[in-house]
Design a binder for these strands. Sequence first.
DNA 1: ATGCCTTATTTCATAAGA
Length: 292
Amino acid sequence: MSHLEEPPRAEAVGRWEAIRVRLATWNVNSVKARLPRLLEWLDEAKPDIVCLQEIKTTTALFPEAEVNELGYEVAAHGDGRWNGVALLSSVGLDDVSLGFPGQPSYAGEEAELTLIDEPDLRKPEARAVGASCGGIRVWSLYVPNGRTPESAHYVYKLEWFAALRTALEAELSQHAQLAVCGDFNVAPTDDDVWDPKVFVNSTHVTPPERQALADLRALGLTDVVPKPMKGPHPFTYWDYRAGAFAKDQGMRIDLVYASQAVADRVTGAYVDREARKGKGPSDHAPIVVDLD
DNA sequence: ATGCCTTATTTCATAAGA
């Protein structure tokens, strides 16, 4: 992006540690529909590690060759129509985890429609992928939406957060350098939505959801709040409808939660709202975090 | 204000998103 400073060059020290790293997270809302925009953005922003969410395709159909050509290794985790996450890295990609231990499956209304009656046999949805990249343990997460506070999906969302907390506690015991990135589907505070009155009785702002985030931070994770580039709020999502982006009617629901060792390395963080403009954008903008 | 929904699929209708 022409308005941005040149990214710090990743200085690889072997495969395992890169001194200066540009880390990004982006809910692309279909990696296939977004491929031209994604490739263009990778070429311009030049991140070293990228967490993608809502790839909306299968692992096998991820456009890996196109991304490889730009110098990234790929760990994709997708099971079809919805969800799906991926990690791209130019600084090594090792010890890939598809999902996390104890990750719950959705057992709400939809489960009654499936052919699998045994809850234990239901596969968890493709909402988490982890890997070690350039000396950092990185997770790309797509937290369940929750739909409405009365729904089974909301219960699932809170269970998902609780299981995530347990998994991240174990991750932190193994990896001092940990970055948990993605679409958390929760606005941490009222300042993180364009108008709190609009969200009364909605998901994304309820006290239990915000407590779930607080419980993650209590593990020792820091919310790396990006600069908004424009306007007072670092929103990362704007609805496609009603000109929400033009009016900056957005939400901050995409987050980077960093361990202390990673948080201490942050030299800059911003929301790349340029990627939300133009033809065929995602409804989310990428977050870019520079580490030294 | 950088353009007033978009996506994938069991498609000309629906479910999901947040």
